Amino acid sequence: MSQSVSKADKKARKSELRETIVVIVEALLIALVFRTFLYQPFSIPTGSMQSTLMIGDYFLASKFTWGFGKYSFPLPLPFNGRLLAFGEPQRGEIAVFRNEITGEDYIKRVIGLPGDTIRMQQGRLYINGAVVPREQIGTAEDADSTGRTVPVTVYRETLPGGVTHIIQEISDNEYLDNTSEYRVPAGHYFMMGDNRDRSADSRVLNQVGYVPFGNFIGKAEVRFFSIRNNIAPWLLWEWPANVRWDRMFQPVHS
């Protein structure tokens, strides 16, 4: 009798272990499908998109909005173009893309569409020869990833098509405030950060340059977490003094 019970216990334990493994594998597969085809989480390590996206913000990017490119998957696939692309990026949208020059994922705002001309002159953005309107709405202090703080002027900028968003400028005479004219090639986009004087973007051709549509990963949609000083989110004891509660579960506005 004792031996019979022992065999039954062993069989039950094996069955429970097998069920646990199945549940774990199923959960991992669901997470993989969610991340690959629906939404992928990202964090913000630098200040190039402040104040729209702050250092320490965590957000979800939709993977399906513009279809799937070679960098949409956990491992890059050897093809160009996009699969199931029912739409294209619009001016003013915020996108995650792979910068093939650095091998890193960047997040910037779509400023120039294929065929557009872009130029910066005395801090003002020109698209297709016309200056983009901006309105000063205040001043602020901007801190970069090293903690270095500088005063900035805050503007509300209105892009062609009507998308209005907030930008920051240290001044109108910084490194990338006066450029030659860029002409965006077919199938490419011109990307810029909202923190104009602290953003390496398409204005730097040998560091970012024009971004092929096939390199887009997803469209920024919603912040789900935000913490100051880029503190790791699992340090729960740091939350009370550092979590930005007012930025959580908020859409990433254009």
Rank of each mutant, 00 (worst) to 15 (best):
P133W: 00
R18S: 10
E100T: 06
R148F: 15
F73E: 11
L77C: 06
P45L: 10
F64E: 14
T20N: 09
G47P: 04
D116Y: 01
T153P: 05
T36W: 07
P78D: 10
G47D: 07
Q121F: 08
P41W: 02
V23G: 11
P89C: 01
S48K: 00
V154A: 07
A31H: 03
I55A: 12
P114F: 02
G67S: 03
L75K: 15
E26G: 14
E19K: 14
F34K: 08
K63R: 08
N99H: 01
T139S: 13
A85K: 05
R82D: 03
E104Y: 12
Q122V: 14
G138M: 05
K11C: 13
G92L: 00
W66F: 11
A95T: 11
E104K: 08
I137L: 03
K10M: 14
F59N: 02
L113R: 07
R98W: 08
T36S: 09
A143H: 06
P114Q: 06
D105H: 07
G123Y: 01
A31T: 06
E141M: 12
L125V: 01
A85G: 04
R82P: 07
K70N: 14
E104W: 06
N80D: 15
E135P: 03
S48H: 00
I101Y: 07
A31P: 02
Y71V: 05
F59E: 01
S145W: 07
F37T: 12
Q40L: 13
G147A: 02
P114D: 08
V23Q: 11
G92K: 06
V110N: 09
Q136T: 03
I44L: 13
E88T: 13
I21N: 12
S43D: 14
T146G: 04
R134W: 00
G112W: 02
E135I: 06
G81F: 08
G87Q: 07
S145R: 12
G138D: 08
P41T: 02
I111S: 07
Y58M: 00
T36F: 02
E141I: 13
T139D: 13
T117E: 01
G112A: 07
S43P: 15
Y106F: 10
V131M: 04
T117C: 02
P41M: 05
I94P: 01
F73T: 11
I44Q: 15
V23N: 12
T153E: 07
K10S: 14
R18G: 10
E135M: 04
I30M: 04
R98Q: 03
K11R: 14
G115W: 01
E135L: 01
A27V: 05
R124D: 10
G69H: 11
A143W: 05
F42K: 03
E135D: 04
D9C: 15
T139V: 10
L53W: 09
S43W: 12
G47N: 09
S15V: 15
Q136N: 08
F59D: 01
P151Y: 09
K108G: 12
D105G: 12
V23H: 11
F97N: 03
Q122F: 11
E16Q: 15
G138K: 00
L28W: 04
R98S: 08
K63W: 01
K11H: 15
G67V: 07
Y126K: 14
I55M: 09
T102E: 08
A140L: 03
G81Y: 03
E16R: 15
L28T: 09
Y58G: 03
A140K: 02
E88A: 11
